[in-house]
Design a protein around this nucleic acid. Sequence first.
RNA 1: GGAGGAAUGGGUGAGUGGUUGAAACCGGCGGUCUUGAAAACCGUUUGCGGGGUGACUCGCACGGGGGUUCGAAUCCCUCUUCCUCCGCCA
Length: 424
Amino acid sequence: MHDLSYFRNHFDRVAERLATRSNPPSLEQFRDLDQRRRAAITQTEQLKAAVNKASAEIGPLLREGKDATAQREQVRVMKAEIASLDEQVKSVDTQFQELLTGIPNTPHESVPVGKDADDNVEVRRVGEPRTYDFAPKPHWDLGLELGILDLERAAKITGARFALYWDMGAKLERALINFMLDVHTREHGYTEVLPPFLVNSQSLFGTGQLPKFKEDLFKCEGQDFWLIPTAEVPVTNIYRDETLEGDALPIRLCAYTPCFRSEAGSYGRDVRGIIRVHQFQKVELVKFTRPEDSYAELEKLTADAEDILRRLCLPFRTVVLSTGDMGFSSAKTYDIEVWLPGQNGYKEISSCSNFEAFQARRAGIRFKSGKKSEFAHTLNGSGLAVGRTWVAIVENYQQKDGTVLVPEALRPYLNEEVIRPRKL
RNA sequence: GGAGGAAUGGGUGAGUGGUUGAAACCGGCGGUCUUGAAAACCGUUUGCGGGGUGACUCGCACGGGGGUUCGAAUCCCUCUUCCUCCGCCA
């Protein structure tokens, strides 16, 4: 959510910047609604002040034993008028809030202007894709042949786009989770948290998934519980409606959680394998910072996520998303893309964003700054998507004989150097 | 799931219909005193939203929502959360 007075006072400049997004918000109504809302508020509040004044006079009159019928009648009439005016205020305010909360964040000045993902700008490329003296297979073939990934039974148990891992497949997933959490907590200074995997509407509003993107989420029937689409939601909301001590910043948290996404609107995309599924595992990095530090912290957070890929010796590149490819709440986003031989290309494995005060304003996350309190900046990024890291390892470390080599860094976690085929 | 109890400002906690946006204490901030610090003393210390260049002013908020009343922290309804006891349970 935008700062209202800033938005009002810099309307043309902000509107121009917002127009560079892929779904630019319609702002035509803003000025009219804003003005109508303020006029309505002024009107009712003046009347309320009159009522307060009149009814304060009644008490003393009664105490003196005088008659107050006239005053009572006067207040009663004004109250009736207020009731109808309040309706108007409520109606215009609701419209205004809907408009305001539906406006995406302003892209930071360093974000390249562009239409879509094609206009994203590569900022780094690390590692060389391996060359194979055989045709590398995609992970869905490898997973089946190795007996570690069982998509058919997952579909039976639940449905399409779910995964069942067996044996070394399950252990690899678990090893990756532990490895990532260990690196971030021991080497990068993050504190581990284990949050609820179900959240309420208020939390989803705080991080910006609601009200606009509810079709992407799973909801529990008859209850205000939603399956989390990312740990960003419960972890960022840890400090919802709280004021943090200024000295406590920056706060760096990391969390492992499963993530649940309905993937509505993604039909036909990444249908094979487990690149795009309804449930996947992720280790998430979340930061709360002072405004002046947030961009430096974004660089560090992105580097922390990249470090996992470096340690696993997986080739990757990092791009800065163009204005046309950014998410709703973000002011700046880096995507980290890992090399996948099965796709013969780079595929997103982490998305690292600075939301500035956009989420903090929605969620009421403040910090003490001298005598005043102000909104913190929030950031987050995948560190990393575990399922896609699993894919990257299986595909990049496959060998001619059908086995998969375990990356050096994971061997202590797996007690194996090679994943060998087994019967499913 | 059943039975009781509770929810007030950063914290403790008073307040059961009319200058109570809220006593008191603690904490925080500023000051006096002091070589410095402590102590003592004085002052100050909620948020959101309107109006005004500004001094300032108005409205709303005592867990959330609704109601009674000229007037609600205080009375009623409802929801939520927490505590105690019982039941169930990994």
